[in-house]
Amino acid sequence: MHVFATLVAAPSTVTDGAETVAVLVLLSQYAMFRAGLSRSQVRLYAFQSLSVSALALIVAATRHIGELYVLAGLSLLLKVILVPSVIMRVLKEVRGDLAGSHRFGVATMVLCAIVLSVFGVFVVEGMPIHSKSLPLPALALAAAVVLVAFLLVIVRSDVVSQAVGFFSLENGVSVASLVLAAGLPFIAEVAFLFDLLVAVVVFGLLMRVHHGRAATLSTRHLERLRG
């Protein structure tokens, strides 16, 4: 509960704002998890990335890290504009079967997501971590985002959901990096974004190949390889 104490002792509007944005990141993760339509998932992903960029901006402004402005701009360009538009383009070429790839009941899965996020939050809360850039709750929320992203990939059976799940995992990691490592070597951060770019290309390519072969975006028939 030490976190509790320190934050109550020294509240500030900026960190409050940061927390609200971090909560938005998690909320959009849940929304992605629930969303039936691939298109709305991609839009939610764009919104989540926008929140992450906003967080980067907040950190840049409060701690005066010039590089972070660049990083926020790059991630805005890449994750809010480029990645969603690439996936949207793939979707545009596809007609039909965009909805409802839940393997289990949504309500059940939402309860699982709640349990997972509570787990993530408590694990991180127990860590002796103090951050100068962002309040620790953001890290706990990032952990929850990562876990729910995993669940999303597991319980959805279409390539778009799975790709979006992976990208939102990266968003969670981005938030964690803002909390833990606001001064991480710039080159590593840029490399991270570059990787994301390449991942988009690979995912986009594979999605298209997959659709070309199977004429569907569902992954239900991808179970030939077993054992």
Partner: peptide, 27 residues
Amino acid sequence: VEAAWKYVLIASMGLGIALLATLVMYY
């Protein structure tokens, strides 16, 4: 194609976790 999709998805998720590990080590 099936193998590549599984591979890229699972390995990328794993490496997301590995990145988290790297960040925590940085911290």
